[in-house]
Every structure is written in C-alpha cells, then in structure tokens.
Amino acid sequence: MDIKQVSTTEQLKPLLSALCQLYELERKVQKRSEFESLRRNVEKMKAAFEELGYRIEDPDGQSYNETRVDLEASIAGSSTEDLAVTEVIKPIIRYVMRDSSGEYTKVIQRGVVVVESRIKN
C-alpha cells in the first residue's frame, strides 16, 4: 500500500480508532490482577495489526520538546523546560514498511498527550 494513499484517506479512521481502543484496553487491564490471562490476547492483537503494517507506540514517559511533531501536547504546570509525557490520551500510530534494506515507518496518527516538566519546583 502506498503510504501517500494511507495518509490521505479517511478510510483509516475506524482502524486508528480500533488501535486506540486496543491501547486503552491494554493500559486498563495492566492494572488488574487478571492481566496475565489477557496479556496473550492483547499481544496477539497487536502483533496482528503489526503484520498489517500498523504499530502502536506508547509515548508515556518519553521526553518532549518543540521539535517533536509526532505528538500533540498540552503542557501542564507552569514550566516549559525539560518536559516529559505524563498522560497519554492517544498513542502514536506508525505505518511500517519493510524491504530488503530494512524498516521504514511513517507517523499516521500523532500521539495526543499531556507533558509536564521533570524539574520539581
């Protein structure tokens, strides 16, 4: 599939929504005791999507600065220095292309996050 087509089509919306739900599901069940029994299913779903070329990237805890364009951020707190992601509303979704020379990815959904300064007042 041509990435240009992927990026410009509205058809991806339901798929992106399903990927976001999967991410959310994983995050919710991680905190629960029954996670171990569900982990396999969640991982297999992620692997199936990855087979199709769609990868979920969790930006939680990653550093943020003004050059990152794979994230749509809201800054909480008053400082804008040494920022890191503290809340993920939507994960980053990448389209993965592979050929003999390696792997290339393209951001097809930017992560929606809240970032905060690591510097404590």
Binding site: E66, T67, R68, V69, D70, Y104, T105, K106, V107
Partner: peptide, 8 residues
C-alpha cells in the same frame, strides 16, 4: 521524513 521531528 517519518513525520516525527521538525527543527522549525
């Protein structure tokens, strides 16, 4: 080119 970085 993956859409993850822009120097501005």
């Amino acid at each position: 080119d993956d859409g993850g970085y822009d120097s501005g």
